[in-house]
C-alpha cells in the first residue's frame, strides 16, 4: 500500500511531535521562554497553549538556570518535563544545571536517582544572528557523560525523536538547527517515534564517506549530487545521535569506501569531527586509502555580515572541492 505523504516543514514536524507527546502522557509538560502566549521564539510551540493550557505549556521568566533546574527537579519528582531553551548560546546560563546536576545525579547517587528530562534548543548559524546567537555547541555537550545528545536533521527525526527521548530514563538534549525550521518536505501520515541510538545512511556510494549531522547534512547531500554527476559516488551518513556515537555506522562505510570526510558546523579544535576522526583512525586505520579530512566552521566568533558568515560556515563548494581532492589524490 502506498504511504500517504503530507507536506510540512521542520517546524511543523517538531510541533506535531510535541503535540503527540502532550497527548500521550499527562506527565509531559513544556516550559521555557515564550513557549506559550508568544508561540515559541521560532514558532515551534504555536497553538499548544490553547490546546493544553498554561499548566502544561509554561511561559517562564528569563531564568535559564532556574527553569532548567526546575525541569531536573520535576523529572525527579515524577513528571516528564520538556525544557525549551531559546538558543544554544543561552544554554550556557543553564550549564551548571545541565552539567553539574542533570548529568551527574544518577552516578553521584550510585544509581538511586535518574533524571528523565528532555531539553530542546535551537543551534547553529546561517541566519546572520552574529556571535551570541549562532554557535554550534552540540559537539561540546557531546563531551559530557550522563547526557544523550540528539540532532534531528530530517522531518522524520524532528517529528519522531522527541517521544523516544521522553521514553529515555536519562537526560536527553535535542539540538534543532535554526536554519532548518522553515525547511519544507514530506512526511508520511503514519510517521512516529524513531530510534535514537543509530546513525543513518542516507545515500549510498562506493568512493567516499561523507559524515555529518544537522544543517551540514543537507550541504553534504547537495555536494553528493554534484559529485555523482562527476562520477564520484558517496555514502552520506547522518550521525543523528552525537552522544553516544554509533561507531558501527561510519566504520562499516569506511570499510567500503576507504575515505572519510567529516563535515561539522562546530569549531575544528576539540570538535565532534575530531572525535569521529579519531575513532576512524583507532578502529579502521588500515582500511583507509587517504587521511580522514574535516570541514568545520572557521575558528572565529560568528560574524554578522552575510558574506563573512558564509565564509565561516562549511559550504557545498568546499565539500565538493575537498572530496575531489581526496579522490584524485
Amino acid at each position: 500500500m502506498e504511504q500517504q505523504l503530507r507536506k510540512m516543514n521542520y517546524r511543523d514536524a517538531l510541533n506535531e511531535g510535541l503535540r503527540e507527546a502532550l497527548q500521550k502522557d499527562e506527565r509531559v509538560f513544556l516550559m521555557g521562554e515564550d513557549v506559550g502566549r508568544y508561540g515559541g521564539c521560532f514558532a515551534v510551540s504555536k497553538g499548544l497553549l490553547d490546546e493544553f493550557g498554561p499548566e502544561r505549556i509554561r511561559d517562564t521568566p528569563l531564568s535559564e538556570s532556574a527553569f532548567t533546574g526546575a525541569g531536573i527537579g520535576a523529572a525527579l519528582g515524577g513528571m516528564r518535563p520538556i525544557v525549551e531553551i531559546m538558543t544554544v548560546n543561552f544554554s550556557l546560563l543553564a550549564l551548571d544545571q545541565i552539567m553539574n546536576n542533570a548529568a551527574t545525579y544518577l552516578h553521584m547517587s550510585g544509581g538511586l536517582f535518574n533524571v528523565p528530562l528532555v531539553i530542546r534548543m535551537a543551534t547553529g548559524g546561517g541566519k546572520q544572528l552574529a556571535a551570541q546567537h549562532s554557535h554550534s555547541l552540540e559537539g561540546w555537550y557531546a563531551h559530557i557523560p550522563g547526557i544523550k545528545v540528539l540532532c534531528p536533521a530530517t522531518l522524520e527525526d524532528a517529528r519522531g525523536m522527541l517521544w523516544s527521548a521522553l521514553l529515555d530514563p536519562d537526560p536527553v538534549l535535542i539540538f534543532e538547527p535554526a536554519v532548518l525550521y522553515p525547511m519544507e518536505g514530506e512526511l508520511s501520515a503514519d510517521a512516529g517515534p524513531v530510534a535514537i541510538d543509530q546513525a543513518k545512511l542516507l545515500r549510498e556510494g562506493k568512493d567516499l564517506t561523507l559524515i555529518s549531522y544537522g544543517s551540514c547534512l543537507h550541504k553534504c547531500l547537495e555536494a553528493a549530487s554534484i559529485l555523482a554527476e562527476e562520477g564520484i559516488e558517496t555514502d552520506v551518513i547522518d550521525l543523528r545521535t552525537l552522544r553516544p556515537l554509533d561507531d558501527e555506522s561510519f566504520l562499516a562505510s569506511v570499510a567500503k569506501t576507504h575515505r572519510a570526510l567529516i563535515v561539522d558546523e562546530g569549531w575544528r579544535s576539540g570538535s565532534l569531527a575530531a572525535e569521529v576522526s579519531a575513532r576512524i583512525m583507532e578502529q579502521a586505520f588500515y582500511q583507509l586509502d587517504a587521511p580522514v579530512e574535516r570541514i568545520c566552521t572557521a575558528e572565529v566568533p560568528m560574524p554578522y555580515a552575510k558574506h563573512m558568515e558564509e565564509a565561516a560556515l562549511p559550504q557545498v563548494s568546499s565539500i565538493v572541492a575537498t572530496a575531489r581532492r581526496m579522490i584524485d589524490g
Binding site: A66, A70, I72, A74, L76
Partner: peptide, 12 residues
C-alpha cells in the same frame, strides 16, 4: 545549585 532543583520538585 540545589535551589532550582528544589523548585522543580515542588512543581512536580
Amino acid at each position: 545549585g540545589g535551589l532550582p532543583v528544589a523548585v522543580g520538585l515542588a512543581l512536580a
